[in-house]
Amino acid sequence: MRLKVTLKCEPDTILPYNYNHHLYKAINRAVYDSSTMGHKRDLGFFTFSQLYFEQYSISANGIRNLGKCVQWYISSIKGYFLDAILKGFSEAGSISLGNVNMPIVSVEILATPEINEVMEFSCMSPITVTCNLDASQGRMRYGRIEDHDFTEKLRQDLINKHYRVYDSLPSDDYLVFEFNERYISNKRRVTRLINFNGIKILGYMIPFKVTGNPELIRVGFHMGFGNRNNCGFGMVKVWYPPTAEDILGNEVG
């Protein structure tokens, strides 16, 4: 289950580049302010997207909004957790990113797509994999996509999430990830370095195919792939690669 939140944002408003911790606080505030019961233990069972702008430009101080609205998506495997967010947002009426206050125009509940044994996804927020603490630098190391165990860590993480949600291991733990190499070669940069309230987190924005147990894939779709999901990492949407007709149409147009 996921929500689509539409926020009013005046043209020429400057939003901070690193806004994840503000969005995280908005979700926590909505949940704790809501009277919905049974949700507080599930504060780790959600993820959220980057902000989507109608139009924007980059300035020295942040992201300059050129449209009238900004869209934001939140996902959780717990329906009543999103119900609590929905109620909390309705009561709050707005969210704040630093000194920028954005009224909430609408909150929509989105339909869940069918999840099969083979799925292709694109990232709505970066996928990150945490590794052991780097003793030489005294900080957390984040996995690189070229690491031999990067996809294995993604698989193990989904198994752990399944156990946390259902209190049981999946019936089948087979999963294979394939990141889109053509996309990687065509993009100048596929990494994102997010400053989450002073903590720098490395992630990747790359479409990928995953093959295996739909139970585990469904957990990833709702809760996020990789780590730091409730900090705004690992949210995905179903990716539909362009068809030959689409490409031809774009060339003709």
Rank of each mutant, 00 (worst) to 15 (best):
residue 42 D to E: 14
residue 209 K to W: 09
residue 109 I to R: 10
residue 26 A to Y: 05
residue 183 Y to V: 05
residue 112 T to I: 15
residue 21 H to A: 06
residue 240 Y to V: 08
residue 117 E to M: 11
residue 158 L to R: 08
residue 142 Y to P: 09
residue 101 N to C: 13
residue 105 V to I: 12
residue 230 N to I: 11
residue 185 S to H: 12
residue 51 L to M: 09
residue 134 D to R: 01
residue 151 T to S: 12
residue 243 T to G: 06
residue 111 A to P: 14
residue 34 S to N: 11
residue 27 I to S: 08
residue 164 R to L: 13
residue 213 N to M: 10
residue 234 G to F: 13
residue 192 R to N: 10
residue 167 D to N: 14
residue 151 T to D: 09
residue 206 I to T: 10
residue 21 H to R: 04
residue 131 C to N: 11
residue 157 D to N: 15
residue 160 N to H: 12
residue 194 I to R: 03
residue 67 G to M: 04
residue 206 I to G: 01
residue 213 N to T: 11
residue 44 G to W: 06
residue 55 Q to R: 12
residue 171 S to K: 09
residue 47 T to N: 07
residue 124 M to W: 02
residue 3 L to M: 12
residue 102 M to E: 08
residue 50 Q to D: 10
residue 21 H to N: 07
residue 25 K to Q: 15
residue 67 G to R: 09
residue 128 T to D: 02
residue 34 S to Y: 15
residue 39 H to L: 15
residue 23 L to W: 01
residue 28 N to H: 12
residue 39 H to P: 09
residue 211 T to V: 15
residue 244 A to Q: 13
residue 13 T to S: 06
residue 106 S to Y: 10
residue 196 F to K: 00
residue 4 K to G: 05
residue 54 E to I: 01
residue 229 N to S: 10
residue 79 G to T: 05
residue 84 A to V: 02
residue 97 L to P: 02
residue 99 N to F: 02
residue 104 I to G: 06
residue 199 I to Q: 10
residue 35 S to G: 13
residue 41 R to A: 05
residue 7 L to R: 03
residue 124 M to F: 09
residue 77 I to N: 03
residue 211 T to L: 14
residue 251 E to N: 12
residue 48 F to V: 13
residue 3 L to E: 00
residue 171 S to A: 09
residue 196 F to N: 02
residue 161 K to E: 03
residue 110 L to P: 10
residue 122 S to L: 14
residue 152 E to Y: 00
residue 66 L to R: 07
residue 205 M to T: 06
residue 148 H to V: 03
residue 153 K to E: 06
residue 92 A to S: 12
residue 107 V to P: 00
residue 233 F to Q: 07
residue 80 Y to A: 13
residue 188 R to V: 14
residue 75 S to P: 02
residue 93 G to T: 09
residue 7 L to P: 03
residue 167 D to C: 12
residue 159 I to N: 03
residue 66 L to F: 06
residue 154 L to A: 00
residue 150 F to G: 05
residue 105 V to Q: 14
residue 24 Y to E: 11
residue 102 M to K: 05
residue 183 Y to D: 10
residue 45 F to R: 13
residue 232 G to P: 07
residue 184 I to H: 07
residue 121 F to A: 00
residue 205 M to L: 02
residue 203 G to D: 01
residue 14 I to Y: 04
residue 203 G to C: 02
residue 134 D to V: 02
residue 129 V to S: 06
residue 164 R to Y: 08
residue 26 A to F: 14
residue 153 K to N: 05
residue 140 M to Q: 10
residue 93 G to W: 15
residue 68 K to Q: 10
residue 70 V to T: 06
residue 172 D to P: 07
residue 209 K to N: 13
residue 239 W to Y: 01
residue 40 K to N: 14
residue 49 S to M: 07
residue 180 N to C: 11
residue 84 A to G: 05
residue 53 F to R: 04
residue 28 N to R: 11
residue 49 S to R: 00
residue 156 Q to S: 14
residue 219 V to W: 07
residue 82 L to H: 10
residue 225 F to G: 07
residue 61 N to I: 08
residue 229 N to K: 09
residue 161 K to V: 10
residue 4 K to I: 04
residue 131 C to D: 12
residue 176 V to T: 15
residue 134 D to I: 01
residue 140 M to E: 01
residue 152 E to V: 15
residue 112 T to C: 14
residue 189 R to F: 00
